[in-house]
């Protein structure tokens, strides 16, 4: 009788891949949400120092960054330099930088503005002190010394 056809033992069975785009989309959304585009390209080398008692910087939108380190390109010298936005700067440029950072934020949120100092661990404190003095002058008191969290110091 031909009413019931015998199932043919076909070699490679097809896997249903219709859910594949969904999985990929899920991953995609995950990365879309977690991604933070680097706003500046670093022109100074920054290797953050290590610390055990670090805190997470919350509300990244309220953080302005000051980078300090040796220029990547040696033609700019081997002395530690300050980088604000995309250019080298002097300590005297900091008040203006803070002023523009403040203007970009909502008035009610300005007082929560934190300045994160991302300095290389080989930097001398002289530069950092200059920055701190400038920040004090303009009333940007909340600062954060960017450092990597380690469980223990390795000597």
């Amino acid at each position: 009788m031909a009413r019931f056809k015998k199932k043919k033992p076909d070699g490679a069975q097809k896997i249903n891949t219709s859910a594949l785009p969904d999985i990929i989309f899920m991953l995609l959304f995950f990365f879309m949400v977690t991604t933070t585009m680097r706003e500046v390209t670093l022109i100074v080398k920054v290797q953050a120092p290590e610390a055990t008692e670090v805190q997470k910087l919350e509300r990244k939108s309220l953080v302005s960054y000051i980078y300090v380190g040796v220029p990547v390109k040696t033609q700019f010298g081997t002395e530690s330099r300050i980088q604000l936005n995309d250019a080298f700067a002097n300590p005297s440029d900091i008040p203006e930088f803070i002023a523009t950072e403040r203007e970009q934020r909502d008035e009610s949120e300005r007082k929560f503005l934190t300045t994160s100092i991302k300095a290389d661990k080989k930097t001398r404190m002289g530069v950092i002190t200059d920055i701190k003095q400038e920040l004090r002058k303009v009333g940007a008191f909340k600062i954060n010394y960017s450092s990597r969290k380690v469980a223990n110091f390795s000597n």
Binding site: I24, R38, K56, S116, L135, F141, Y145, S146
Partner: peptide, 29 residues
């Protein structure tokens, strides 16, 4: 799936997972 893959790879490359940590201090006036 191909389109999604393409986007996925783009975000995979651009993503930076570093969480900013550091020692918080308050400067004196």
């Amino acid at each position: 799936a191909d389109i999604a893959f393409l986007l996925l790879i783009f975000f995979l490359v651009t993503t930076t997972m570093d969480i900013d940590t550091g020692i918080t201090r308050k400067l004196p006036p």
